[in-house]
Simulated assay, not measured.
Amino acid sequence: GRLWKQAAKPGSERWNEVMETLLKRGFTIDPTFTAYLASRDLMRMNRAVWHNEYTMPALWDWYRPSRINHGSYWFDWTTEREMDWKENFRLWMAFVNEYKNRGGRVTVGSDAGYIYNTYGFGYIQEMELLREAGFSPLEVINAATQQGARLLGHDADIGTIEPGKKADLVIVKGNPIANLKLLFATGTLKLDDTTGKAQRVGGIAWTVKDGIFYEGKALRADIRAMVARSKAERGLPPGYMTIEQEDLTQ
């Protein structure tokens, strides 16, 4: 969490030298900011609303503080460490955004499976973090689609919507350019002023892979059933994904 603070300062000669070298080599940055998001706000990530229904208990066990499990380093987490990481993100994001502004390729990845970073949800969080770094919403979408396809060498088949390309699409109800949170599989909450009640909006309605349609609602139901079944097999209560209750009730 202190690495970027130890590196060259933004705009310095060394900073620019590294930047120009990477640009000259056609280097692609796939930062996976979200893999370290818990480091700057642990409570936010281990209380994420999707854990209880969409995080498998075996994965949750892997997330917990451990001297052995990769990425599970919360055995003595402090406010000071989180402050270090907040500054680390600020400098890291500045470099990535400047790299993009200078013509460098930046793509989207989540490195899920570690550090309270759950598959699928982490990918959209990464898009939000690129937005925080200074990318416009359209630049975020471009990084997640066209730039990723180019990096993988598959831009002739995927990455943009064009005649002749594969129909690989995520269809949501709403405009993600206005609110990237609509891309979360479960959507997000919004107040309905006509009823005075919060309603869930957005969410993935359909996933289209090679022209085959998969209903988002049905896919989510399958995952919830898998998680519930795994909890039942281990004798765990449905609300297992909670912090240690015995520590709070003493």
Rank of each mutant, 00 (worst) to 15 (best):
T55C: 14
H51W: 02
R64Q: 15
I68V: 15
Y73K: 06
Y54I: 06
N52V: 14
L59H: 02
R64E: 13
P57G: 08
E80R: 04
E80N: 09
W62F: 14
N88P: 00
E53K: 14
I68H: 07
R90T: 09
R64L: 15
T79S: 05
N52A: 12
N88H: 12
W60T: 01
D76W: 02
N88E: 14
P57M: 06
P65L: 10
H70M: 03
W60M: 07
E82H: 04
D61R: 11
P65V: 13
A58V: 11
R81D: 04
A48D: 12
W62K: 12
W85Y: 15
E87N: 06
E87L: 10
T78S: 13
A58C: 02
W62N: 09
A58F: 01
A58N: 09
P57C: 04
K86N: 10
A58W: 04
R90I: 10
A58Q: 11
E80Y: 01
S72F: 05
R81M: 15
R90G: 09
I68D: 11
W77Q: 02
P65H: 11
T78W: 10
W74Y: 13
D61A: 13
V49N: 03
I68K: 05
E82I: 03
W62D: 05
F89H: 05
L59K: 00
E80K: 03
G71H: 05
A58S: 15
T55F: 06
F75Q: 10
M56W: 11
H70Y: 15
S72D: 09
L59N: 01
G71P: 06
W74L: 04
T55M: 13
R67Q: 11
H51A: 08
H70R: 10
V49L: 05
H51C: 04
W85P: 00
P57L: 07
R81H: 04
F75A: 07
Y73Q: 09
E80H: 00
M83G: 00
P57I: 08
Y63Q: 00
W77T: 05
R90A: 14
T55A: 11
Y73C: 02
W74F: 12
E80D: 10
R64H: 12
R67F: 14
R81N: 06
T78M: 07
W74S: 06
M56R: 12
Y54T: 05
R90P: 00
N69V: 15
M56N: 13
D84M: 03
M83E: 12
W50T: 11
N88K: 03
A48K: 07
T78E: 01
P65N: 09
S72N: 06
E82G: 04
F75P: 01
N69D: 14
H70N: 04
E87R: 06
F75G: 01
A48P: 00
T79L: 07
N69A: 11
P65D: 05
N69L: 01
T79Y: 00
R64T: 13
W50L: 08
W50A: 03
Y73E: 08
W62Q: 07
W62E: 06
G71K: 06
F89Y: 09
H70G: 09
M56T: 13
R67C: 03
Y63T: 02
R81K: 14
